[in-house]
Computed example of a mutant assay.
Amino acid sequence: MPMLASRVRAILTPLLRIRFGLKIQIALLGIVSVLLTGMICLGGLFLDARAQAESDQMISLRQDVVDLAANYLEAGQIANEFLRKRSLA
């Protein structure tokens, strides 16, 4: 573990000594801000697509339930009509 820390420190120390000018710092801040905003947008789009897919599944399930209920109602009406005709004959 101490070997790893010393290696990381040896790599990062020269990088931390680099000083950027004000223009470069402002440019980097702008670039990082745009990238962060883009990542947030992509995350939102992903969540929206997932929610839309789930909503579509729920609508399909609701339609299946409505169709099933209509079929049960029709079957009940046919059974009643059959019993009524049978009793009249």
Rank of each mutant, 00 (worst) to 15 (best):
E81C: 01
I11N: 02
R17G: 08
R19K: 14
G38M: 08
L36K: 01
T37K: 10
A69Y: 11
L35V: 08
L45E: 13
V65N: 07
F20R: 11
I59D: 03
D67P: 00
L22V: 11
R7S: 15
K85H: 07
S33Y: 02
L42K: 12
R9K: 13
I31M: 15
R17P: 00
F82P: 00
L61H: 12
R9A: 14
I24Y: 03
R62Q: 13
L68A: 13
L61W: 06
D67G: 05
I31V: 14
F46C: 07
Q52L: 13
F82Q: 06
S6N: 15
V34D: 03
S55E: 11
R84T: 07
V32W: 01
V65I: 15
L28D: 11
A70L: 13
L45V: 10
A75Y: 03
F46E: 06
R50C: 08
A53H: 10
L45R: 12
A53V: 02
S33C: 07
P2G: 08
I18K: 13
L36H: 04
Q57L: 10
M3E: 14
M3L: 13
A27F: 10
G76K: 03
L15M: 14
L42S: 14
L22Y: 01
G76P: 00
D48C: 07
F46R: 12
R86Y: 07
L68K: 04
A69V: 06
R19V: 06
